[in-house]
Design a binder for these strands. Structure first.
Lengths: 164, 164
DNA sequence: TGCTCTAATATGTATATACAACATAATCGG
DNA sequence: CCGATTATGTTGTATATACATATTAGAGCA
């Protein structure tokens, strides 16, 4: 089955077009972003499934956990802890404030804010804890002990790097 | 610095409220979804950065690669290869068709479709290849040989599981 | 044949993500 | 003290993601 494009000599590329075929084979077999996204989507699905009954997502629970642990804390600091873009955090917090899980007060400097967990937010966390533990177990089963350890190491490698 | 909520005896929870504090410490130290999402976001950023100059995202390039390699192929099959929800794939493909990278024809049965790469899509792939290789290298540097290998193994574990 | 069940795709809605650009406030250097 | 730079947060825009649901078409069975 000859490729109709294979003989084109008018493209700007100096290499033969079947370069594309070779490259996409490499991508299928080696691409790290494809795999890291697969891992993220899959694990996120496990936690979101488990947490759905209390109406919180995995990402939201991680933010609540930071606020409980480090609060009062500014949006920017939460973003730095989780390595999430400030603008992303801004939108995420907006939803969580709307849900009544968090409150904001002006911080020390007029431009900064202080986030605090509300009673409602705290009870979400408390209800979520056992579901989170289940999801942790389910995930560990899928990944195995080695895979679980690998996730910790990978995250450490990334956090170290961002300190540089 | 005493916690004003710590002594509340009026909550509905039967356990002391500082359960939340203990649990969020566990989350900070052990949560796998927090870490898997960090890994996904970070690696995605590396590839998106590298690919930005040709105007394609990491996710889009992965889809193009599947279509080049396996096309003509239906949307559902692409979704299965990449373990992405069908409805997500539908939206992603919509954008890529709008960009002129893909075409759709009716497939064998009227309800299914056949995706094909266009000339324009193919040249996006060709331009993207060297940038993708750079991003692969940069990622490998950050993760190290062990981390890179771990990503492959984790993705394999997830793909095996979904076969079950 | 017709009825039910499943498969393929699309749509409505909600969340997550990031870049670019903005407004504003603090800080630092002179 | 003032001007440039940096830090904080928001908004506009675009992409990515998934669940629930609808639509339609094939498939299997009575």
């Amino acid at each position: 089955m000859p490729n109709p494009q294979a003989k084109s000599r008018l493209t700007k590329m100096t290499k033969p077009t079947n370069r594309a075929e070779e490259a996409v084979a490499d991508m299928g077999e080696q691409c790290l972003v494809k795999r890291s996204r697969l891992i993220g989507r899959t694990i996120t699905g496990i936690y979101d499934d488990a947490l759905r009954k209390v109406g919180v997502t995995a990402g939201q629970l991680n933010i609540l956990a930071v606020v409980v642990r480090r609060g009062p804390i500014s949006p920017g600091e939460v973003a730095r802890y989780l390595h999430i873009e400030r603008s992303t955090m801004s939108r995420n917090l907006e939803r969580m404030k709307r849900n009544g899980w968090l409150t904001v007060c002006p911080g020390e400097s007029a431009r900064s804010q202080e986030l605090r967990i509300t009673e409602s937010g705290r009870s979400i966390v408390l209800e979520a804890v056992p579901l989170w533990r289940e999801a942790q177990s389910r995930t560990r089963e899928i990944l195995g002990a080695g895979g679980t350890e690998a996730i910790y190491r990978l995250a450490d490698a990334i956090e170290e790097r961002s300190v540089v």
